[in-house]
Each structure stands twice: as structure tokens, then as C-alpha cells.
Nucleic acid binder design. Structure first.
Lengths: 229, 229
DNA sequence: GCACGCAAAATTGTAAACAGTTTAGTCGAC
DNA sequence: GTCGACTAAACTGTTTACAATTTTGCGTGC
């Protein structure tokens, strides 16, 4: 995708990318404050770029900025997560419907490879591998769907959900169930059936939402919880 | 909505809001560069908040930042505008479908008032008035739809389209045609018919797209056009 | 007359400095 | 021993200053 970035970008963009990575990684935990001076020192830059990056992340919904208190990594409230799942279901359904009308042999092969990789990962109970391939599967579909705006919003929202979705694939049964949805979607895509693909895609996303809900027993998801003490 | 802001916001947020207004207004024209020192002086602040605000606007897609060149107000490429219309059709259709299932009497009354206001504006050929009411109509529906995430994305994308959509309502016939779509949507909403509302909403958005297309003869919409010379 | 090149001005990117607020710790009173 | 107030440290918000790049204007050469 867009992993190539020699250096023609302003520093704040690179800092933002690095912070995003650290948040997704788990290097920075939800609820934690982004210490500007510490991060600046760690990344070898000044506070300016770090501040700009933090504000960018706020706009995306990954952090919350409080006046005179700083930027905190968000703990997405439950209702917001549910709304986001509904949004993603809509977008992913659209993407699949679009792709069903224009899919090429190469694209089908690519998706099939990812599907089979997930099948193997599920059998081997390799949650981390499955997680990575799962992301790639969805992102490839959205990239093939030929609507950059829909793709961009989907990626942004998905990144937000990753703040806690990682733990959803801890069991082999969960992975198998998820991949069954992928199979149905893939078949509809290759059959050139837009509405069928859309339905399967929406159903699959609802399944993800359900897995997400069952994965959280009662962690902090209150609206304003986990911000400051 | 959220017009109340005593002052608990960081300065950069207020600058961002002001810049957005100036862009929508037309005070800042597409292609123009955001001169940091000039804007800072004009707004009575320093360059820092202006810079942060510009980066935020880049994230939203209203400006493009080039290294060592500054922030330029975007001239949305044609293909991006079309993609955005498709996205908005999806979101607005979803919002209408949701609302059809949960609309209250108060909400219906509110929307009806806006519709009648537009009817009057169209009859009086008051394009500016129609434009304002039209925005309110769509935004109110999305606010009533009870999905904050979908609403937020819709607002963001719509703001981007406003960069040139303003000129689409220059004729009375156009306004009447647009408002006929509003009437159909409103009837479906009050009838509690989600799928019908969704179809009308999507059709209405496609109509807006068509009006937009016919409104542009051949202005600069090339992908990378209008950036620097 | 036109193009090329060089130099000065303007502007952005980044870093450092200052002011105000929040947070933590300590001392004292009850 | 615990609660409360006061003081100091830490941190953010903003401004100011400096370095690097770009743009513009002018002069020279062809």
C-alpha cells in the first residue's frame, strides 16, 4: 500500500505514524497520557511536532485532549464502538458490492491466498498471524473497491477499533467462525453477485461486533471513564 | 447544535473553526496558500496554533500541506468529489433508514418546518436561504439518526464538498427539484418505511451529484491541478 | 528580447524559552 | 493517625527565536 515514504514528509507526519504504531502495538496503553517532553526526547525531536501529531490523532479519535492536562490515549466508549461497527458494516458492505462488479482474476487470487492463510492460521491456533491476515483481507477488498473516500474512512475507523479488538481472536473457534464469513464473501465476489456480497459482508461485520461484545466481560468502557483519575 | 463554546477549548481548535468558516465562506479561495504569519496576525495569535489548525484541516481533507511550501486550500479533484458523493449517499441512506424506525413527532415537525422553508425559498428564488436550510435539513436528519460516528463522517465529508457545491443552487428549478426529493424522504420517514427512505435518500444524493456535475462546465478539477504553479 | 543564474527577501520547519495550570509531596493542625 | 492546606515540581499552552528552504527580483550573457 503506502509503506513507501523516503522522507518527503514533514516531521509531524512521521511522528504521527510512529505514535499510531505505538498505540496499535500496545506500547502506549489506553488511558495513558502522552508526555510531550518524554516522547520528544525519545523520538529525538522537539515538542512542536509531537504536539501536532497528538492533535492529529485526536481528530482521528485515537486520543482525547484535555485543556492543560494533555493528550490521553482513548478508551473507546462502548456505544461509540457499536456505532463504529455499524458504520464499518455499511462501508464494508458497500466495498464488497462494488468489488463484486469489477473483480479481476489477480484480485481474486490475492484474496484467496489471504483466506487460505487464515485457514492455516486458525488450524494452528496462531491468533497473531490470523489477526494480521484478517486485517489485510479487509483492507485489500476496500482497496480493490475503487472508492478512495470510502476506503479512507474505513481504514480510519478500523484503526480506532483496533485499540481493543486485538483480543477478540484468542480462540480457534472464533477464528474459524470469522473465516467462514470470509469464505462466503469471497464466493459472492467471484460469482459477481453484488447484493449477496453486501449481505455477507454486513453479516460478517455484525459477527465481528458480536465477537467483540463477548470478548469484553466488563472492562472499562464507560463513556467518560479511564480519562483522568 | 454545538454552537456554545464559552472558552474551554485550546486556542488551536478555535483557530481551526475560524479557518473552516473562512474556507466555506469563500474568504479563502481554493488554491490559495495559508500564510501562517498573516493569518496569525489577523487572528491575533501566534504561528503555533495556526500551524496546528492547518494540519488538522489537512487531516480532514480541506487543505494540502507540502513540505517547505505550506498549506494550500484544496481544489477537490473531480474523481474524489464523485467518490465522496457515493460515500455520502451511503451514509445519508443509512441515516434516513435508521430515522424511519425511530422518528418522533417533534423531529418530524422540525424537518417539516425546514422543508416548508425551502419551499418558500425556492419560490422566492432565494438561493442563499435555500442553501442554508438544505444543509440544516440534512444535518438534522443525521443528528436524529442516533449514530454519532456516521453523523460525524457525514458532516466531515459534506464540509469538504461545500468547497464548490455552493454554486449548484443558482436556479429556481434546481431548488424545486431538490426539494421534491426532500418531500419524498420526509414522507417515507413519517410513514416509518426504512427501505423506502433509504432509496429516496440515495436517489436524492445522486440528484445532488448530477446537479453538481452539470454546474461545473470545465473548471480546474484535474487530480494534481491548482496546487502550486 | 529572452533565458539563465545569482542574491536577497519571504516563508516554512524546528527548536528553545516563558507563562499559567495542574499535580504531587510535605508539613502542620486536629 | 488522618485530613487539609500550602509549597514546589512537572507539564502543558503559547510565544518567540533560529535555521533551512523556497520564492522573487535583478542583472548579465547570448
Amino acid at each position: 500500500m503506502s509503506t513507501i515514504d523516503p522522507a518527503p514528509h514533514p516531521l509531524s507526519a512521521r511522528v504521527r505514524a510512529e505514535l499510531e504504531r505505538m498505540i496499535i502495538d500496545g506500547t502506549l496503553s489506553p488511558g495513558e497520557r502522552l508526555n510531550e517532553v518524554a516522547l520528544a526526547k525519545q523520538l529525538g525531536v522537539s515538542r512542536g511536532p509531537v504536539r501536532e501529531a497528538a492533535r492529529l490523532l485526536e481528530r482521528v479519535g485515537l486520543v482525547t485532549v484535555i485543556l492543560n492536562r494533555g493528550a490521553f490515549i482513548r478508551t473507546v466508549p462502548l456505544d461509540e464502538a457499536l456505532d463504529t461497527y455499524a458504520l464499518n458494516a455499511l462501508l464494508f458492505g458497500f466495498g464488497c458490492a462494488q468489488l463484486a462488479d469489477s473483480i479481476t482474476a489477480d484480485q481474486a487470487l490475492d484474496l484467496r491466498g489471504l483466506y487460505e492463510g487464515m485457514e492455516a492460521a486458525a488450524a494452528a491456533n496462531a491468533a497473531e498471524k490470523f489477526f494480521t491476515l484478517n486485517i489485510a483481507f479487509h483492507e485489500h477488498i476496500m482497496a480493490f473497491a475503487r472508492n478512495r473516500q470510502v476506503e479512507a474512512v474505513y481504514l480510519q475507523q478500523t484503526r480506532k477499533l483496533m485499540l481493543f479488538r486485538r483480543r477478540s481472536f484468542d480462540r480457534a473457534a472464533t477464528m474459524a467462525e470469522s473465516n467462514a464469513g470470509h469464505r462466503r464473501i469471497l464466493e459472492a465476489l467471484m460469482a459477481g453477485a453484488p447484493e449477496q456480497a453486501r449481505l455477507y459482508a454486513e453479516e460478517h461485520t455484525r459477527g465481528g461486533r458480536a465477537r467483540f461484545l463477548s470478548a469484553i466481560e466488563a472492562p472499562a468502557c464507560g463513556t467518560a471513564a479511564n480519562l483522568p483519575k
